[in-house]
Write a protein that binds this DNA or RNA. Structure first.
Lengths: 414, 414
DNA sequence: CCTCTTTATTTCGAGGCTCGAAAAAAATAG
DNA sequence: CTATTTTTTTCGAGCCTCGAAATAAAGAGG
């Protein structure tokens, strides 16, 4: 039995999370608002907010919007205390590392973007660079080091959430890099490492909850092809790895050579290197390019738009590959809204028709056939925000253990 | 926020479930045993068991194994009270309906198997037959009608768990059959309708927990091809339909005609009708046979074993289709143990080599490559047991609301 | 300016729950 | 018949949520 035994304090923990979630979603809320949002009784909200204020997690903001000029005792607005904690995020992508410090309200404190030749970088090079960047940010912002409470990392590649390890990545030759362990030891906080696509899904859920609520998929079309999936309101994680490797579903048995070493993966037809390989007239078994610059990719796209030729055919192949993957995905989980993210979303016009044709009629027995797709050509802001939300939600779930918080900020290591 | 607000009684509900789950797994347990198994304190177990006994859900079984001849106060064995509830299961398959009455301990009370020409049966014909069978069983066992508390139905086809509806099925022309609503109205109990493959997965989890615990897939190879999936110890359900339609993942774009009306589904290569179609030298766009009898399928299998020809080639194609689906599935969820169930499992020797070849190296980045597959040629006992466990676990989750039970058995309708 | 009304928040008691410690039960050992 | 051992129940402490009543803090109105 996986089932855990329930204790009375679990109830408080869960309801505290509800209160914090409400506050995170709306910034300024009176206790009455919280009652309305959560469904908890006024007495319970009072008890919980009193404790949160005493622990410094929440502040009363008297100057805030006082719903003024109404009769009766005025509501007093509550807000998360931005200074109670600092979190750090790390985005690691091809030739790029981006670290940011956020406060507990999710506001940027400091950041650094650094270009790194990741393809030639060892695991040590990468961790060294990341630590340098983080050290610099923490040093520049006095007090932030002492308040650092969590780090979230989104990486291009396959990760293992449980051990916070990057198992494999196209951006560096080294495998099984235990980023979590290393950063955790150095900064004395817990670390989450996940695929960048999971982070994108997390971000979409927060920035556009109307479209991305319970069930949806975010597909990153870039150097590689990945997916972040939400099902029943929960992130879908693989058994071991943290991401659903959409790009490595099988499109054509014994087909084109994929960067992962196998043949026929969707990625081998739909990623930027696959499109350029086909456009250049190379054999589909030719070794994939390690790095494709945006300029040449866009040039090919422009040529595809201007005339019907090898370029346009390559994009159509890509659309078919993605569509084929979606058809299989939808067979397994039923159709869900799709967010296309990254450079590939910028050329959606070139792949849409073929993609839709293959997907159409996904549910042969007559389920809703309409496929909704939205495009987000720039993946970086989403990855960043996803990392941030991951860390903050982690805090919201940890700060629960009442009384725990008082000690936590002192437990730093550096 | 999907999050529900927690109340103090939820704690008791959860812990009651733990106690019942322990009892369901071991039949005879003393309170001390339950303490050991659940981790609850002795006082809590005492409180919970006292209530369960008062409500008639659990019995003391003094005669039971008294761990005799030891010093100290003897343990008194507890056991589920078989008479507190009756449940009914319905398996609906091609030309077959099988209804069974079980007691609360999962022992068969009565059953009937009836051959029905389902292909020519309307929704009304089917429900009428099922109700007749259930009525007969309930009438034959005095008292059982008054104790009937749940019905579980496993059907070949696509189902919607939420509305307990069969959306589409290959065994009958009618669609959107609301079995749940109909049976629920007639018998006054709640009804679960799910794909037969989900039931198989549920059964495997209980009959062989050592091999099928947290993550595994049960694939039914029969007239159609379906899958029941467990991930992280929970049944995996689609967004709308209750099953993961493995058989309708895309194997070959614009490929062979599938019974679902689309082209290129795995099923169009690996189901019995697909194999016979190919063996007979028919075009792969030929209309699928509605019904394939076991004898001719086995004859083809025997011929495939005895000589290398069209038969063997057809099975190899089937193995490739299944392997291709597994490769894609494993990309999404990481490799899991597989149970092959049904007639197709009886010819595993003919498909294994091709299946494994395509799946091999599923995790390009070096995850555990070994693929474990076990075969269960007879699917019916598993479907039956899965239905039973579904109903019983439902009761274990409903009998929680303390005091609820006293009224429930009277709330019958018939 | 003082009282009335209205709305927000806190306080208080009832009724749950789990748990550890102590008490009670029910056997064997001698 | 008493001592010992083991199981089970009882009791009090310390959680939790909730509804009702009490308290706070405004505007409205004479």
């Amino acid at each position: 039995m996986v089932d855990e035994i329930a204790r009375p304090d679990d109830v408080r923990r869960q309801n505290r999370r509800l209160v914090l979630a409400a506050l995170r979603g709306h910034d300024l809320l009176s206790r009455t608002d919280i009652v309305a949002q959560t469904g908890l009784s006024a007495s319970t909200v009072s008890a919980i907010t009193t404790a949160l204020i005493a622990e410094g997690i929440v502040n009363e903001s008297r100057d805030g919007d006082v719903t003024a000029n109404r009769r009766g005792r005025p509501q007093v607005a509550l807000t998360l205390n931005p200074e109670i904690a600092t979190i750090a995020t790390v985005e690691l992508a091809l030739n790029l590392a981006h670290t940011v410090l956020f406060d507990y309200k999710g506001q940027v404190i400091a950041q650094e973007i650094r270009r790194i030749p990741t393809l030639d970088a060892s695991a040590g090079d990468l961790t060294r660079a990341i630590c340098e960047m983080l050290d610099g940010l923490l040093a520049a912002m006095p007090g932030s080091a002492g308040r650092l409470m969590h780090i979230s990392m989104g990486v291009q590649g396959v990760t293992d959430a449980a051990s916070a390890t990057m198992l494999w990545s196209p951006i560096t030759p080294d495998i099984n890099v235990a980023f979590g362990e290393i950063l955790s030891a150095r900064y004395g906080v817990s670390v989450a490492v996940a695929n960048d696509c999971s982070m994108i899904a997390e971000a979409l859920r927060w920035t556009d909850p109307e479209h991305y609520a319970e069930d949806f998929a975010a597909i990153l079309l870039s150097h590689g092809i990945g997916m972040g999936l939400y099902l029943k309101g929960k992130p879908f994680l693989g058994v071991q790895s943290s991401g659903a490797e959409f790009g490595h579903m099988l499109h054509v048995p014994n087909g084109a050579l994929c960067r992962c070493g196998r043949h026929g993966c969707i990625e081998a037809y739909a990623s930027d290197y696959a499109i350029l390989r086909r456009t250049a007239g190379e054999d589909e078994q030719a070794q994939p390019a390690q790095d494709v610059d945006a300029a040449s990719f866009n040039a090919v796209a422009d040529r595809a738009r201007s005339r019907d030729g090898a370029e346009r055919a390559a994009f159509r192949k890509a659309g078919q590959a993605i569509g084929s993957g979606l058809r299989s995905l939808f067979s397994l989980i039923d159709p869900v809204p799709i967010a296309l993210v990254g450079p590939g979303a910028g050329v959606f016009d070139l792949i849409e028709a073929d993609l839709r044709e293959i997907v159409s009629g996904t549910t042969g027995w007559g389920g809703k056939p309409d496929l909704t797709i939205r495009c987000y050509p720039d993946e970086h802001p989403l990855i960043l925000q996803g990392c941030m939300m991951t860390s903050l939600l982690h805090l919201d779930t940890q700060l629960f253990a009442p009384g725990d918080l008082r000690e936590a900020p002192l437990r730093r290591a550096i």
